[in-house]
């Protein structure tokens, strides 16, 4: 029964499967294959097959070819996770009130606000991130204002710090948090909030027991949409971190450009992907567990 149904639906699914195959599976397979090859002198890859790229992630080779543990890349990896997690948390903290504010407006205003949220996408992310350099640098807008108002006499260095990277990441990915939360809140019946107030819930209790449980799905979607790309981001760390504070994304980017070590770049992205997959599976398990205890 289900066998014949599957045969019948196959032609209908074919285009979708084709898209997934060409755009998702094939690049991953290629990256996976590259990670087990040897780097070519001018980029690219060549034989023989080796696991060297993965070894390099954790170890350095001494002159006598013995392995020495090296945490350089682990630190980069850890910094990436920390920054991506901080980005996600900040995005929720900012995005939730923003989405709530939007959802409480009337229809015309809401449509306008959704449009406003998407306006940044009309300009290239590289340019927008570079604008933050102009704003934050020593001769930038912020320092000019601070010096002009006499708050400080010497410019304060904002750039090239983890905080600057974080700012850039939150700026880049905030819309991906706001929009899914807004989508769930917009569907939330305002009478439910009134009912909560009617039943002796103050503002906080109404949020905690009614709004939050119903907005959680949007926050979960936003978390994935923000955390995953933030983890692999390289523009913000490159421009705002000045290349001094590498993130895993910049590391991978470097391997495919100036470092010309494609296998190592591919291996790093494979490790990143494995981490993301494990994190998503754990999150999905936990959520499934909450729904049906």
């Amino acid at each position: 029964m289900s066998g014949t149904a599957r045969v019948r639906t196959l032609p209908l699914l074919a285009p979708a499967l084709g898209v997934i195959l060409v755009f998702m599976v094939a690049p991953m397979l290629i990256a996976g294959a590259y990670s087990f090859l040897t780097a070519g002198a001018y980029g690219g890859v060549r034989l023989p097959v080796t696991g060297e790229a993965y070894v390099r992630f954790l170890f350095d080779r001494d002159l006598d070819d013995s392995l020495i543990f090296d945490d350089t890349y682990l630190v980069i990896f850890g910094r990436s996770i920390a920054l991506a997690a901080a980005t996600t948390v900040l995005s929720v903290l900012i995005g939730l009130p923003v989405a709530w504010f939007m959802a409480c407006r009337d229809k015309a205003t809401r449509d306008l606000l959704v449009l406003a949220i998407t306006i940044p996408f009309w300009t290239n992310l590289l340019i927008r991130t570079y604008c933050w350099v102009l704003i934050l640098r020593d001769q930038g807008l912020v320092n000019a204002a601070l010096i002009g108002t006499g708050v400080t006499s010497e410019p304060i260095t904002f750039l090239y710090s983890n905080e600057a990277i974080l700012l850039g990441l939150v700026y880049s990915f905030l819309p991906f948090m706001v929009l899914p939360i807004y989508a769930t809140l917009e569907r939330l019946d305002p009478r439910l909030v009134e009912a909560a107030h009617d039943l002796y819930a103050g503002r906080w209790a109404a949020f905690r027991y009614v709004v939050w449980p119903l907005a959680k799905a949007g926050v979960a979607a936003g978390t994935i949409l923000v955390f995953v790309p933030a983890l692999g981001a390289f523009l913000a760390p490159d421009l705002l971190g000045g290349g001094r504070k590498l993130m895993i994304g910049s590391l991978i980017h470097l391997q495919f450009t100036s470092s010309r070590n494609w296998p190592f770049g591919a291996a790093a992205s494979m490790i990143l992907m494995a981490f993301v997959l494990v994190a998503l599976v754990i999150a999905a398990r936990r959520r499934a567990g909450q729904v049906a205890p």
Binding site: D189, E194, H197, L199, V210
Partner: peptide
């Protein structure tokens, strides 16, 4: 007095039951 401090309860036309 805000709604949550009034000893008054409402049966809403759409019921407004908490779905979760």
């Amino acid at each position: 007095l805000p709604p949550h401090r009034r000893p008054v309860n409402t049966v809403f036309q759409s019921y407004a039951l908490f779905p979760h």
